Amino acid sequence: MVDVIVVDAEGRVRDADVPLLFADDLAALRGDGVFETILIRDRSSRLVDEHLSRLHDGARALDLPAPDTDGLRRAITVAEREWASPDDACLRILYSRGRESGGPPTCYLTVTPVPERSATARRDGVRVTLLPRGVEPSTEQPWELAGAKALSYARNMAALRHAQRYGFDDAIYVSADGLILESPRASVVAVVDGSLTTPPRDEGILPGTTQKALYRVAATAGVSIREARMTPSDLLSADGVWLLSSLTLAARVTSVDCTPLPAPSAAAPDVPNLVSRAISERMM
């Protein structure tokens, strides 16, 4: 099995050892584009509708042409077929403005093994630190790309490196007025007053595909769900806090800035099980 599978937007498998991007592609020069990360489990891509919808929304936010979702579905099918392993895989869709010298947008898919850190976080949980975000994007500031999964991801990775430098596994952003926002690469969900609670989308956070799927399944299971503002004290008193993402799925937050969080009580919703159901019930 190869370590990287590359499929172009026309569904052709490309040699991963042969260069694909031009040197002046704006994905590389400026991070001018959007991307999606999709879990392949049992050789089937999960939550494809949600990811393609978010890709479309992100492209619109960046004034990119609408991606060819039908073509991407065909390319995803090819990528699934090329992934010969029963192990989980990470499928990424990259969609950039294309070459600085002109031409159509660039679009391709890659498939790689899921990083070991995802399985570790899922199994052991994560220790997080709270970081001020500084700039507060909102829907009233479209140039800040609130809610778009943009390729310009250096800031997110710098936040994670900072957290890891001080002995944490991950971070949670806090707004200037002390509100919980999101992780650099995950949604935050906590059990507050018996309800699954996530920050409102109008706070300038990325709409989480896994969080959305969790809420859909939780609602059908009779679990109380809501979007509501949360503070750090809400996390410390919550009956369980989770970081949700496409690859890790559900990682329990075990401590916040060195303050241990107790394990969820028997009365708390079983978030990992609900997430597992959510990614199984909706496939392409």
Rank of each mutant, 00 (worst) to 15 (best):
R81F: 07
T197W: 10
Y95F: 14
S85A: 13
R201Q: 14
S138L: 05
P113E: 09
V111T: 09
R127N: 05
G11N: 09
A121I: 00
S44G: 07
D177A: 03
R46T: 14
S101M: 05
A28F: 05
L62T: 01
M284R: 08
S233I: 00
R252D: 03
C107L: 08
A171L: 07
E281L: 12
A89P: 08
P264Y: 03
A150N: 12
E281F: 01
A250P: 08
L214P: 11
R14N: 06
E50P: 01
H162R: 14
A27V: 00
L62K: 02
L181V: 01
M283C: 11
D88G: 06
S44W: 01
P67H: 06
L235H: 03
L29S: 07
T248S: 15
L29H: 01
D63P: 00
L206G: 11
A176Q: 13
T106I: 05
A121P: 02
W83N: 14
G222T: 00
A27I: 05
L29P: 05
T259R: 14
G98Q: 01
S101Y: 02
L64C: 08
R117L: 13
V7E: 10
P200M: 12
A66T: 12
I279S: 08
V223W: 02
A150G: 08
S96E: 03
T209L: 04
R155E: 15
T69G: 05
E140D: 15
Y173P: 10
S152D: 10
R81S: 15
N273Y: 00
S187N: 15
T197V: 07
R165N: 10
T209P: 10
S45K: 02
A75M: 01
G208S: 04
E203L: 15
A79Q: 09
E36R: 13
D25S: 06
D17E: 14
L235W: 14
A238P: 09
R12P: 00
A228T: 08
H51E: 08
G178L: 09
P67A: 06
R117T: 15
R30Y: 14
R252K: 07
G102C: 08
S101C: 04
T77N: 04
I76D: 06
N273C: 09
S152E: 02
S265C: 05
D8A: 08
L206F: 12
G98P: 13
R92P: 01
E36W: 12
L249F: 00
